[in-house]
């Protein structure tokens, strides 16, 4: 019996987890509840409040701008999370060695993460803009008309996805590297004795051992990308005509542009429920499979 039972065990459990839980309750849960309460009000930034029941939610259901932002958000997450995960995994496998070269490469692939979103979008604006951008120069050399990446309704979302993948690679790579450290070395030795091919070693040993990390990366990235904001605000301003407006950008515009705090709060709660639903589904999917094993 490794888990300690009885009163003493309870006490120390709360002693260890208590400080975090206390802060969690006051700084996250309490404001979240305030926000939920706010979503049933017509409210502005300066304390005006009128109870309107589900009015804000009803408005959201019939607001085409909001619908489009929900759709955009999902498309973006789908365009970002799978490629990001695969690329990060491959890079981690390639860079999981103790050589100096590997360390340098790890630094390189991590380097974009140190930039703030302001700068990332500024850099990518200059790469993607059809006037003088890097991609435009290349396509002109190839004799093609440069594509309007930042102003064509079909191109802005892919542009945001590419920018985000470039910016976000570092952390998943680190997680995979940390995960690879937990693979017991003897399994590999056994595989080497078996003369397994590189490919089958990957499928039979590496990937199953990385399952926890893989799920962690996918869950985290899904939750993060569903809340994508800065890139859309700064690179395309949600345009053209709302084609790249994400849910958080919608919320931001409603709250700080229109001062319609209750409406923004309602949209934020819907986003919360969506992220929550997806995260929980992912979490249950693994814990159930874990139990089956």
């Amino acid at each position: 019996m490794t888990r300690s039972r009885g009163k003493a065990g309870h006490l120390s459990g709360y002693a260890f987890a208590g400080p975090f839980l206390l802060l969690y309750a006051t700084i996250l849960v309490y404001p979240l509840l305030l926000g939920i309460w706010l979503s049933f009000q017509r409210a502005d930034l300066f304390g005006a409040r009128t109870w309107v029941g589900f009015d804000n939610y009803a408005r959201l259901l019939t607001d085409p701008t909001f619908h489009q932002s929900v759709l955009n958000t999902f498309v973006l997450a789908l365009l970002i999370v799978p490629p990001l995960t695969v690329i990060a995994l491959l890079l981690a496998l390639a860079l999981n060695r103790a050589t100096r070269t590997a360390a340098v490469f790890r630094g390189i692939f991590f380097s974009s993460s140190v930039l703030s979103v302001t700068i990332v979008t500024l850099i990518w604006r200059f790469i993607l803009t059809p006037d003088a951008g890097l991609v435009a120069e290349i396509s002109q050399v190839l004799g093609r008309e440069p594509l309007p990446f930042l102003s064509h309704p079909d191109l802005t979302i892919p542009s945001l996805a590419i920018t985000t993948i470039w910016w976000s690679l570092g952390f998943p790579i680190m997680l995979f590297l940390a995960g690879l450290q937990q693979v017991p070395p003897d399994i590999y030795e056994a595989a080497a004795l078996d003369r397994s091919s590189r490919w089958s070693t990957f499928w039979r040993i590496t990937l199953p051992s990385l399952r926890r990390t893989l799920v962690l990366v996918i869950m985290l990235q899904t939750a993060a990308q569903l809340q994508l904001f800065g890139q859309a605000q700064l690179l395309t301003a949600g345009g053209p005509s709302g084609a790249s407006r994400t849910m958080v950008l919608f919320i931001y515009e409603v709250v700080f542009g229109r001062w319609d705090l209750g409406y923004g709060a309602a949209a934020a709660e819907i986003l919360f429920l969506l992220v929550l639903g997806i995260t929980l589904a992912q979490y249950w999917a693994i814990t159930r499979r874990e139990a089956e094993r």
């Binding site: 604006r125 803009t129 006037d131 309007p148």
Partner: peptide
């Protein structure tokens, strides 16, 4: 011109 933002238009 159509596909320019403000810095692009200024440079043009």
């Amino acid at each position: 011109t159509t596909n320019q933002d403000f810095p692009g238009a200024t440079a043009a």
